[in-house]
């Protein structure tokens, strides 16, 4: 085997994981960065998407593309319901409820064995052309697919951000009463934003399943939520490009620390494993200390104020 190809294969795989994290960060950015609703249950929507697509393709025999669409739809409905339930909650309360949601999803996945195969998980989830092409080619195909989806989602969300619709979401974020007084139907906007965000998270989940071919409740732990919140905070809350950048940085950091710690003398693998996690936390602290708004801070689309003279008169 050609050694060079192998390292490239690793880089391709990590880029794919970074794309999946980017989708998660983009989904979070819409609901948190734009609409100001914290969602600490994003791994729950990630799980819903993964299970829907895995079951649809493996048990239902539908094509993978349709499975991904189904994942988007079901996760979006779950998000809409979630938003309706939590309509009056903000801040800490919303954070706790959403965190609870993700735990409920995980518990349902562990216990409804007839549907989810319980803690054994679902293995052998089909992937596009998996088995028909070499594993290396499959890796590349999947990266292209994931990158394509990131581009599409990024495009759509940028469009949302720059549109009057995005402006309303920002208004709700800053003060939903003012937005309401200005005649905006706040609840409708919140539900729609939450649903769209959850749909994006569901797509990421579906991709994860098709990529690794195995999902189990243990995959969908709060650790992933933490990584994604970290990615968005480091990249720049409110900025879609920041979300993508942050996701790539987090995956880069998680992987780079594997190699960097190899040269620290006198440390056993156990200390190195602990040090890796500290390094990831430390780097976030540094980023937030130096750039409190993230690496790519949110830049509000310019709105021309009326000429000064007019206002005075």
């Amino acid at each position: 085997m050609n050694g060079r190809t192998d390292v490239e294969n690793y880089l391709v795989a990590m880029a794919t994981f970074a794309c999946l994290y980017a989708l998660l960060a983009l989904g979070l950015n819409l609901v948190w960065g734009l609409a100001g609703m914290i969602n600490l249950g994003l791994v729950g929507f990630f799980a819903v998407g993964a299970y829907v697509s895995a079951l649809a393709t493996k048990r239902g025999g539908v094509p993978i593309a349709l499975g991904i669409v189904a994942a988007l739809a079901v996760a979006a409905v779950a998000g809409a319901v979630m938003a309706l339930i939590t309509a009056r909650l903000r801040g800490d309360y919303l954070a706790i409820i959403t965190l609870g949601f993700s735990e409920v999803v995980r518990l349902v996945a562990s216990n409804e064995i007839w549907l989810t195969n319980g803690t054994d998980g679902i293995s052998g989830i089909p992937g596009p052309w998996r088995g028909r092409v070499s594993p290396v080619a499959f890796n590349v195909i999947f990266l292209v697919l994931a990158a394509l989806l990131v581009t599409v989602v990024l495009g759509v969300l940028e469009r949302v951000r720059h549109s009057p619709y995005g402006r309303v979401l920002r208004a709700i974020r800053d003060d939903d009463q003012v937005a309401g007084v200005a005649g905006k139907h706040v609840l409708r906007f919140k539900v729609e934003a939450f649903a769209l965000s959850a749909g994006v998270l569901g797509v990421a989940g579906a991709l994860w399943g098709h990529y690794t071919s195995f999902i189990a409740p243990e995959v969908f732990v709060p650790l992933i939520t933490i990584y994604v919140v970290l990615a968005l905070t480091a990249g720049g809350t409110g900025n879609n490009w920041g979300a993508v950048l942050g996701a790539f940085l987090v995956v880069f950091f998680m992987e780079a620390t594997r190699f960097a710690t190899g040269w620290l003398p006198g440390l056993g693998p156990v200390q190195i494993a602990a040090l890796r996690e500290s390094l990831i936390g430390l780097s976030l602290l540094v980023i937030l200390r130096v750039r409190p708004a993230g690496l790519l801070p949110e830049r509000l689309p310019r709105v021309e104020p009326p000429p000064a003279g007019e206002a005075a008169r």
Binding site: D6, V7, M14, T212, A216, V221, R258
Partner: peptide, 15 residues
């Protein structure tokens, strides 16, 4: 964690 393990295994296999 299966997600972290998959990344670690890729590194062991490919790199």
């Amino acid at each position: 964690n299966p997600e972290a393990a998959v990344r670690a295994a890729r590194k062991l296999i490919d790199v």
